[in-house]
Amino acid sequence: MSTAESGRIIIDLFTTLDGVAQGPGGTDEDTSGGFDFSGWQAGYPSSGVGGQVMVGMTHLDALLLGRRTYDIFAAYWPHHTDGASGDIGVLFNRVPKYVASRNADIALDWNASSRVGADLASEIADMRARHREVHVIGSLDFVHTLLAEGLFDELKLWVYPILLGAGKKVFDDGALPSVLRLLEPPVADDGGVLLLRYGRTDRVPGVGTFRD
């Protein structure tokens, strides 16, 4: 867990109530495994989420992305630096982008992009030393690695009142057993979308037995 002096690794995910975080933003984002609901978030407009996202990006000064999310962002954000989403586009284009990949020969053409993955724990420690807030957006397969190795400081979930059943979940069976700390009261918008912010701790879940 990071110290008060170090930067933070913040995971940002959109998820359904039953924990599905696969392909929220578009119909062609992620249909792997025969997933029929890619684009489910875009199909449920929410008045409060956009403002919450922008507030959460106030101190972002680097991105840490999985390869699939990086490719989606690199194809979109360089061409969207004005209009309703212009502020995010300008920010994403400006800040350093770290891309998690096992392939040392990948081409990263978006400006200020570099690969990580040779020694993730060491590389994340270096990011904490360099940056105030590094945000991991989407990148679900990579998020599973961070959750398994405890390499994050905050987990931020936008929970939609949708049930999908099948699909890649926020938490798989590899998540490191741990107790998270609620950082602020939950925030809900008029569409029933709930923002939950949890901080990582070093506590391990305890066990016991309830008795009369």
Rank of each mutant, 00 (worst) to 15 (best):
F14H: 02
S47V: 13
R68H: 15
D36L: 13
R8H: 13
I9M: 08
D61R: 00
Y44P: 07
A21L: 02
G7E: 04
G56Q: 02
L60T: 15
T16N: 01
T16L: 02
V55P: 01
T15P: 00
F37V: 03
Q52D: 14
I72T: 08
G33C: 07
A74R: 10
T16M: 01
Y44L: 11
R68N: 15
Y76H: 15
P24Q: 03
W77V: 01
S46W: 01
T31P: 06
G25E: 14
T58Y: 01
T31G: 06
W40V: 05
A62Y: 02
F14I: 04
S46L: 04
R67K: 14
D12F: 13
G7L: 12
S47K: 11
G19T: 10
G56I: 00
W77A: 12
D12V: 02
G50M: 08
I9A: 02
A75L: 06
F73W: 15
G50H: 12
P24A: 09
G34H: 04
R67F: 02
D12K: 02
G7V: 10
R67D: 04
Q22M: 05
G39L: 03
H59M: 07
L63F: 01
V49G: 02
L13G: 01
P24I: 06
E29R: 11
V49E: 06
M54D: 13
G7D: 13
G34D: 05
Y76F: 15
E29H: 12
G19V: 14
D18T: 13
V20G: 05
F37I: 02
V49R: 09
T15E: 00
G39D: 01
Y44S: 15
M54T: 12
G39A: 04
I11P: 00
